[in-house]
Design a binder for these strands. Structure first.
Length: 256
DNA sequence: ATGGTGGCACCGCCA
């Protein structure tokens, strides 16, 4: 079973890239973030024509998450807080005995701001939800854009960004709590080297060429899944396309 | 160089 996660920065603008990637890699599950589209306008036929099941939780302009699966999705939950008008950042479902969540964690703007406090709150609330809903011995996969670089090797200039948003000790401590509960950082399990990223800021000229990136996207899995995994990798090929996202695909393979 | 990217929705906001 192949699983991937991708912050699309608009599923409509990135549809050619996503379709090509599905055709080439044929994943069983793709977790999407920043779809930036209301459910009624989601380009679902493109996915259904390729025999994928699709569930999405969108809103106008911002955020938006989705699950694209070769197998039927059940027990769908689109609400972290159980409120209909919450930001579209969370979607969970079950594929047979596999529990999956696609998340788009708030970016946080800048340390010390209200938006940053909201990010910390949201990260803690997601972990509490996970603790209250699953057990570490279940098959659980949490994938998405966490907007946090966990370790110094996860950002291109850790000294420069120490204490800044997306590399702040408080965010990293919360993400570490996810691992302490029983989730494994699957990419880091297979790749110990540095300068491997999933995000490059559009606003920095030649960020990709200089590899001034961040690893903000994760596939977190419980131990039973980690044991059955055979690899995890960043796919840079979609970065070479026309109009790429500022993120790229992170993928993993399992013996399932 | 008072800029420089990109998406969406609207004439600004968010990343």
């Amino acid at each position: 079973m192949k699983v991937a996660t991708f912050n699309a920065n608009s599923v409509r603008a990135r549809l050619p890239i996503i379709e090509e990637w599905l055709d080439r890699e044929k994943p069983d599950l793709l977790c999407l973030q920043e779809t930036k589209v209301q459910d009624k306008d989601f380009p679902e036929t493109a996915f259904r024509e390729k025999d994928y099941h699709l569930i999405s939780k969108g809103q106008k302009s911002y955020n938006g998450v989705a699950l694209v699966s070769k197998y039927p999705l059940s027990d769908v939950n689109c609400e972290l807080y159980g409120t209909e008008d919450e930001e579209a950042r969370f979607i969970s479902a079950r594929i047979r005995d596999l529990h999956v969540i696609s998340v788009y964690v708030p970016q946080g703007y800048a340390a010390g701001t209200e938006k940053f406090q909201y990010k910390l709150r949201w990260l803690k609330d997601l972990l509490e939800h996970i603790k209250g809903t699953y057990k570490p011995d279940m098959r659980l996969l949490v994938a998405g854009d966490f907007n946090v670089a966990l370790e110094p090797i996860d950002v291109y200039d850790p000294e420069k960004f120490e204490g800044e948003v997306c590399f702040h000790p408080e965010e990293r401590a919360i993400l570490r709590d996810y691992l302490n509960w029983g989730l494994r950082d699957l990419f880091r399990m297979y790749e110990r080297g540095d300068r491997k990223y999933t995000f490059w800021d559009y606003r920095i000229p030649n960020a990709v060429k200089r590899n001034w990136g961040w690893r903000l996207d994760y596939i977190l899995v419980t131990e039973p899944l980690a044991r059955r995994s055979t690899g995890a990798w960043v796919d840079l090929e979609p970065r070479l396309k026309e109009r790429p996202s500022d993120h790229t695909f992170l993928a993993a393979q399992f013996n399932l």
